[in-house]
Computed example of a mutant assay.
Amino acid sequence: MVNSSETTGKRPMPPWLHKRLPASGDIESTRRLLADLHLNTVCQSARCPNQGECFAHRTATFMILGNTCTRNCRFCAVEHGRPGTVDQDEPRRVAEAARRLGLRHVVVTSVTRDDLPDGGAGHFAATIRALREALPGAYIEVLTPDFRGSRDALTIVARAKPDIFNHNVETVPRLYPEVRPQADYCRSLEVLKEMKELDASIYTKSGLMVGLGETREEVLAVMADLRAVQCDILTIGQYLRPSPQHLEIKEFVTPETFAWYAEKGKEQGFLYVASEPYVRSSYHAAAFSEQVAGVKL
């Protein structure tokens, strides 16, 4: 079972969050492959509770541009500080790992690199190109930082033609000073809006954590804001505290509420909504490409 002391602090884990750990399956072989290719994953760096399940099914979300973030969001377990130099061979190794794992839907994210002139956009583009070469039929999804709102950076990513461009708003605007003090809600919406303007054929996606003290009305308002910038895909999941040093959980949102959010999201016009307690940005990400985009994986 998932270790509740790591994810909830003093709050007891409700029964719907009891998650059975998978049989070993391919967990160790997936870890060895990633280690052999010297690759980071958000699964490991962010202490994702779905890591065992995903690794057992030989899938992972690659995290490029190092494992040290220039920002310090209070919900996130990824290390923060001064990042190292950009590894120019990393795109090739990501593509090699995806090929060896047999991935047909590849998700690539990164730490935030405010120290780089383009925020790492060129490295995202290089990774997309490497994946296209190694896996011509794969569906490629990128989950990027906000690039400080740079349209030039977004243009670099758009020209590389990912199938899905994901940028998470993470929480409701009222909670940004506490949850994402170095980010800006309006800027995140603008990033999604500009990507759609740059290339309308690229699906856009965003995600929310709940259980941080937001209200239902605030979540619905965020949904409306996302649809106003033509966001296509929405993910909603329960915030789980990575360690006692991170933000406390204010509420365990019930499965019924998640189902209600999913219904409301569909009513607002999202092409696809994933709303369940253990949903994360890239958890079962291929479901969209299979169900909506019609891609055979």
Rank of each mutant, 00 (worst) to 15 (best):
D36T: 09
Q44V: 10
T61D: 08
F62Q: 13
Q44H: 03
F75V: 03
A56C: 13
F75I: 01
T61C: 13
F75K: 01
D36M: 01
C69P: 07
L37T: 07
A77F: 10
C76T: 03
F62A: 11
T41V: 03
A56V: 12
C43F: 09
R58L: 14
T61K: 09
H57E: 14
T41R: 01
E79A: 14
V42S: 13
C73M: 04
C69Y: 01
C48K: 01
P49C: 09
L37D: 04
F62M: 12
P49Q: 04
R71M: 00
L39H: 06
N40R: 08
L37F: 07
T68G: 06
C43K: 06
N72S: 05
A46F: 09
T70M: 01
G66W: 00
Q51A: 08
H57W: 10
G66Q: 06
T61S: 13
G66K: 00
C48T: 08
P49R: 02
H57S: 14
A56D: 10
H38I: 08
A46I: 05
H80Q: 00
N40G: 14
Q44A: 13
A77K: 02
T41D: 02
D36S: 11
G66R: 02
L39M: 02
P49L: 05
M63K: 01
R47C: 11
F55C: 06
A60Q: 04
C76D: 06
F55M: 12
H57N: 15
A77M: 04
N67E: 12
H38T: 13
Q44F: 04
C69L: 04
A60M: 01
D36V: 00
S45I: 11
R47L: 15
H38E: 15
A60W: 02
F75E: 07
S45L: 13
C48M: 08
E53S: 14
A56M: 12
T59L: 09
A77H: 11
A46N: 08
L65C: 12
T59C: 12
R58E: 15
V42T: 15
C43H: 07
T70W: 02
D36N: 10
P49H: 07
F62L: 10
L39P: 05
C73V: 08
N40M: 04
T70Y: 02
C48Q: 06
H57I: 00
P49F: 14
